Amino acid sequence: MRIVADTTLCVGAGQCVLSAPSVFDQDEEDGTVLVLAERPAEAALDDVREAVGTCPSQALSLTEE
């Protein structure tokens, strides 16, 4: 699985960081999402799915690559 983040949609709410702090961070300048692990470990996938589902701007998605 690969995480796709559209920073043009991101509003900087930080829900992704709260859900999966080992996978996501926020840019210090504008607060937009930073993906720390584009292909997260299997153990983190539940947290990543939660982050994708709770993103208020729908800036995150998962692809099967």
Results as ranks from 00 to 15, higher is better:
V11H: 04
A43S: 09
A41D: 09
Q15G: 10
V11R: 12
S61T: 13
A44R: 07
I3E: 07
V4W: 13
S61L: 13
D30I: 02
V35Y: 02
Q15E: 09
E28I: 11
S61P: 05
Q15K: 09
S22E: 12
A20K: 03
G31V: 06
I3M: 05
V35N: 06
D30F: 07
R49Y: 02
T63N: 07
P56H: 01
P40N: 06
A5Y: 10
D25V: 01
R39D: 13
T54H: 10
A43V: 07
E38Y: 05
A20C: 03
Q58T: 14
T7S: 14
E64D: 14
L45H: 10
A5W: 08
A59T: 06
T32A: 12
L34P: 01
D47R: 03
M1I: 08
G31F: 10
E65Q: 11
E64L: 11
R2G: 11
D46E: 15
E42M: 03
L9A: 15
A41H: 09
V52Y: 03
C10H: 11
T32R: 14
L60Y: 08
L60F: 11
A59C: 15
V35G: 06
R2C: 08
A5H: 07
L34Q: 05
G14S: 01
A20Y: 00
V17R: 06
Q26W: 02
T54A: 13
C10T: 06
D46V: 12
D46W: 04
Q15T: 06
T54C: 14
T54K: 14
C10W: 14
V11E: 11
P21M: 03
V35D: 04
A20E: 01
V11D: 12
D6N: 15
L62T: 06
V35H: 07
V17A: 08
L36P: 05
D47G: 00
E29K: 10
A13S: 02
E65T: 11
A51G: 01
T32K: 14
E65W: 11
A20I: 01
G53Y: 05
G53C: 04
V23D: 03
E29F: 13
L36Q: 06
I3Q: 05
S61G: 10
V52M: 04
G14N: 03
T54F: 07
Q58W: 15
Q26G: 06
E28C: 10
P40H: 09
D6T: 09
Q58C: 12
V4A: 12
A20N: 03
A13Q: 00
A44D: 15
V52N: 04
A37C: 11
S61N: 09
A51K: 01
E29R: 13
D27I: 03
